[in-house]
């Protein structure tokens, strides 16, 4: 049951399609959530995650066991996301709030505030240029290390650090800006 990734991959390469189900089970959450945060939209995230797993399956023979399977899988996923983001440039896509974890501890008011806050963050992420968005999500949402991000994006440490620095600044500014706008609306509303 707890076979290692490489054992499962070897079984898949031997023609056992069902063995791939275990790999999907292990990594679907990380892949789906990365896709969701990159695209900001549940439907697209699901399509991209499916496509990513199909691509992973088809290129299993090219998997290099030196890297973690997760890193390799995320590389394929983020590349797909970037391709899709490039294609949809002109279109506007609705943003899902992605809020679904209810622990029952919050009052309805707190829950509303939390939901609003998450929506604001997702909107801010969506506004970032694609090449910055990817680094921010991988580091701060998926908690990956610099080395893993370097493996996924194929960029040098300097570029990864640089992009992450710029991305953090941009996110902070976008959020501060949207906060100010919200306050202005609130003041207008009160008047």
């Amino acid at each position: 049951m707890n076979a290692s990734d490489i054992e499962i991959i070897n079984r898949c390469l031997g023609g056992e399609v069902d063995a791939f189900g275990t790999l999907i089970e292990r990594y679907k959450r990380a892949i789906f959530n990365t896709a969701f945060r990159m695209m900001g939209n549940r439907e697209e995230a699901e399509d991209i995650s499916q496509e990513a797993f199909i691509r992973i399956y088809n290129s299993l023979s090219r998997y290099n066991p030196e890297y973690k399977f997760m890193t390799w899988a995320l590389k394929i996923t983020t590349n797909l996301c970037l391709d899709n983001l490039r294609k949809r440039k002109a279109e506007t896509v609705p943003i899902d709030d992605g809020f679904e974890l209810k622990d029952g501890k919050d009052t309805p008011e707190e829950e509303y505030i939390r939901k609003e806050n998450q929506l604001r963050v997702q909107k801010a992420i969506n506004q970032l240029p694609d090449k910055y968005k990817e680094f921010l999500i991988l580091f701060h949402h998926q908690n990956l290390s610099y080395q893993e991000i370097m493996d996924i994006t194929g960029e040098s440490l300097t570029i990864v650090k640089n992009r992450l620095y710029r991305a953090r600044q941009m996110l902070k500014e976008t959020l501060m800006h949207s906060e100010k706008e919200d306050d202005a609306y609130a003041v207008q509303g009160n008047k």
């Binding site: 679907k28 959450r29 789906f32 959530n33 969701f36 945060r37 549940r42 995650s49 992605g98 809020f99 679904e100 974890l101 806050n117 998450q118 604001r120 963050v121 997702q122 992420i125 921010l136 701060h140 949402h141 908690n143 996110l171 959020l175």
Partner: peptide
């Protein structure tokens, strides 16, 4: 805020 974004169920 970014780190606290919930992980969604697939």
């Amino acid at each position: 805020a970014l780190e606290e974004l919930p992980l969604l169920e697939v």
